[in-house]
Lab assay of single mutants.
Amino acid sequence: EEPGTYGVALYRFQALEPNELDFEVGDKIRILATLEDGWLEGSLKGRTGIFPYRFVKLCPDTR
């Protein structure tokens, strides 16, 4: 996996908008950016989108 910051999904998130990223509990999401209003941008399984930061637990930065 690529170096960078990752978050592990604490809850299932179902995308409601085309720019959102849906995921299941336990998915490991690569964090790409921190956005305003409590949203993160991340990538998972070749898809990129935004999601609420409270749905993931950030992992320590590992290489």
Rank of each mutant, 00 (worst) to 15 (best):
E1C: 10
E1F: 09
P3D: 11
P3G: 10
G4R: 10
G4T: 14
G4L: 13
T5W: 11
Y6G: 03
Y6F: 14
Y6V: 11
G7E: 10
G7T: 01
G7W: 00
G7Q: 09
V8P: 01
V8S: 03
V8K: 07
A9I: 02
Y11C: 11
R12A: 15
F13Q: 10
F13E: 00
Q14T: 12
Q14N: 10
Q14S: 08
A15Y: 02
A15H: 06
A15E: 02
A15K: 00
A15F: 00
L16V: 15
E17W: 06
E17L: 13
P18I: 08
P18N: 09
N19W: 08
E20G: 09
E20Y: 14
L21E: 04
L21M: 01
D22Q: 15
D22E: 14
D22P: 15
F23H: 02
F23P: 00
E24A: 05
V25R: 10
V25P: 11
V25T: 07
G26N: 05
D27H: 00
D27F: 01
K28G: 03
K28H: 13
I29E: 03
R30K: 15
I31F: 00
L32T: 09
T34I: 11
T34R: 10
T34L: 07
L35C: 10
E36A: 14
G38K: 00
L40S: 08
L40F: 08
L40Q: 09
E41R: 13
G42P: 01
G42C: 01
S43N: 09
S43A: 12
S43D: 08
L44Y: 08
K45D: 14
K45V: 02
K45Y: 08
K45E: 14
R47V: 06
R47K: 15
R47N: 06
R47M: 03
T48H: 08
T48C: 09
T48N: 07
T48V: 12
G49E: 00
G49A: 00
F51P: 06
F51H: 01
P52Y: 05
P52E: 05
Y53K: 15
Y53T: 15
Y53L: 14
Y53F: 12
R54M: 05
K57C: 07
K57V: 04
K57E: 04
K57S: 12
L58V: 12
C59P: 05
C59W: 08
C59Y: 13
C59K: 12
C59E: 12
P60L: 07
P60K: 14
P60H: 13
P60T: 14
P60S: 14
D61I: 10
D61C: 12
T62L: 10
T62E: 13
R63Q: 10
R63S: 15
R63L: 13
